[in-house]
Design a protein around this nucleic acid. Structure first.
Lengths: 245, 245
DNA sequence: TCAAAAGTGTTCGTCCTACACCCATGA
DNA sequence: TCATGGGTGTAGGACGAACACTTTTGA
C-alpha cells in the first residue's frame, strides 16, 4: 500500500517508472507428457528465443485480467473451457530485464485438451513444447517455469487441481495420468481410485456414462470435477525417503 | 515479462505510470495469542486507520529488499533474528487505492519474541494488536491480512514454518502453542511431541539444555529449528468436519 | 481366445488417536 | 503434598501399500 503518511517523501518515492507485466506458465498434459505453451520472441533482446507468453498491464485492468487477455492475444487461446489461472509469485529483481525496471506477476495456467495455439498477437509463433525440451528461455523465464512446475506438483497433493488438466468429463485413468505425468512416478491404480473416490468433493460420477480409452479394454466410467477446492485427506505423493522435491 | 515484440504498441503499453509497493502482514505469537503488527496512518486517505506496514519500492531494490527496509523504517524492527519473510501474493485490482494505480506485492513475515515496535519512519505509530481486534483496516488490507492468516495456517501443515514463531531455542510446548494459536484448536501433547520428533529435520535437540516454563512444572528440553523446510510426513490439522482428528 | 484396460477384494503392516500414567519442579 | 507442566506407554482402530482377482471390451 502507498504510504500516504510520507509528508515530504511522498513524491520522491511514488512515481518511479515501474513497468508491470504478467507472465504465464501455461501447462497441459498431452499424450501422457507435460507440455508448456511458449512463444518465440521476434524482437531484441533474446530474439528467436522461446519465452513465456505475457505482456504489459493496461491502465485499468488487474493482473488476472491482463493474464487472460495476453493469453488470448498471443496464443489465440481465448475463453478456454476449464482454464485454471492462479498467481504464482511476483518477480521484481532489478536487472531481470536488461533494458528497464520491470516487475512481473507470474501465473500458472492449467488447461485440458491442449488446443493448438495460434501464434498471433505480438508473438512470432506459439507452440506447445514437451516440458524439459524447451532449452534456455528468455529473461528469467527458466526460473519462473521451474517454480510453476514445483508449485503445481506440490498442489496436486492437497488441492483439486488435477481436474483442471482434464476435459469436463474424464475417466479416473485420465486423472491418474495427470498425477503420474506431473510427479513423474507411477501410482497403483486400485489405490488411486479408492483415494480419489474417498475424498469428498474431488470428483462426482456422471450417471450411466462410460467411454472407451485406448481402443481396447473395458469402458471407463466418467466423472466430473467436484465442488471441493481442497483435498481432505490429501493425496500425498509416494515418499522418496525423508525429503521431497 | 515485457513483450518487446510490440512493434508499434510498445510505447503505448510500457510506461503506464504504475506505482509498486510492498505490504507486510507481520505475525507473532505472544501470550498464547496471535498478534499482528499494524501502523496508524497519519495522512489521507484513511487517516487514523490502522494499516499494514509497507511502502514504495525504490528504483534499484527488489520487493523482498523493500519489505525488509520498510519493516525497519516504519516499525524499528531491523535485523530481527529469525525473521521469516515470504511472498503472499500481489494485489493489482484497479481502484484498490483511491488516488492512483498501485500494484502491491504482499508478504507474510513471521517473528519470534514480539519486540516492541518503534513506530518511527513514516508511520504515526506502530503496535502489536491481537489478531481479530484490529477492526477495519485501510485500503484492502483486511483481505490481505485474512489471506495471510489462511496461508500461514495451511502452511503449518506441511512446512516447518512454526519454528519461525519461536526463539532460537524453544520447548516443544512453545512449538505446540504456535500450532494451537494459529489453528485455534487444542492438540494432544503426547501425540504432537511424537509427530514433531518423527518428522526428520523439523527440530533438533539442544543437548543437555532445559528451561522452566510457566514458573512451575518439570523443566522442558530445548530444541532448535532443523534444516528441513518441508514436513514429511505433514502435520495435518484436526478434523474439519467428518474426518477424525 | 488373448491382450488390455477398468474395477473389486483382501491382507497386513503402519500410523494415529485417545487416554492412562510417571517425572520434576515451585509453592 | 499438591498443582502444574513435561514426558512415556499402550491398546485399538483407521488407513494405506501391495497385489491377486474379476469384468468388459476390441482384435
Amino acid at each position: 500500500m502507498p504510504r500516504q503518511d510520507r509528508p515530504a517523501g511522498y513524491d520522491r518515492h511514488a512515481y518511479e517508472p515501474f513497468a508491470v507485466t504478467v507472465d504465464l506458465a501455461v501447462l497441459t498434459v498431452r499424450d501422457g507428457a507435460l507440455h508448456v505453451l511458449l512463444v518465440e520472441r521476434g524482437q531484441e533482446p533474446y530474439t528467436g528465443r522461446w519465452a513465456l507468453p505475457g505482456g504489459f498491464l493496461l491502465p485499468r485492468e488487474s493482473a488476472e485480467t491482463a493474464a487472460r487477455r495476453e493469453l488470448a492475444e498471443e496464443t489465440g487461446l481465448a475463453d478456454v473451457a476449464g482454464l485454471h489461472l492462479e498467481q504464482l509469485r511476483t518477480y521484481s529483481e532489478p536487472g531481470r530485464d536488461p533494458r528497464m525496471r520491470v516487475v512481473s506477476v507470474a501465473f500458472t495456467a492449467l488447461l485440458p485438451n491442449a488446443p493448438e495455439p495460434r501464434g498471433g498477437g505480438d508473438a512470432a509463433q506459439a507452440r506447445w513444447l514437451p516440458y524439459g525440451t524447451q532449452g534456455t528461455l528468455a529473461f528469467d523465464h527458466d526460473r519462473i517455469l521451474a517454480d510453476a512446475h514445483d508449485r503445481v506438483g506440490a498442489q496436486l497433493e492437497y488441492r483439486s487441481l488435477a481436474t483442471a488438466f482434464c476435459p469436463p468429463e474424464f475417466t479416473l485413468g485420465e486423472l491418474q495420468q495427470v498425477y503420474e505425468t506431473v510427479w513423474g512416478t507411477a501410482l497403483d491404480r486400485p489405490n488411486f481410485r479408492r483415494k480419489v473416490l474417498a475424498t469428498e468433493g474431488f470428483v462426482e460420477p456422471v450417471p450411466g456414462a462410460a467411454r472407451l480409452t485406448g481402443g481396447r479394454g473395458k469402458p471407463a466410467a466418467l466423472y466430473r470435477a467436484g465442488t471441493a477446492t481442497a483435498l481432505h485427506p490429501p493425496l500425498l505423493r509416494p515418499s522418496r525417503e525423508g525429503r521431497p522435491a
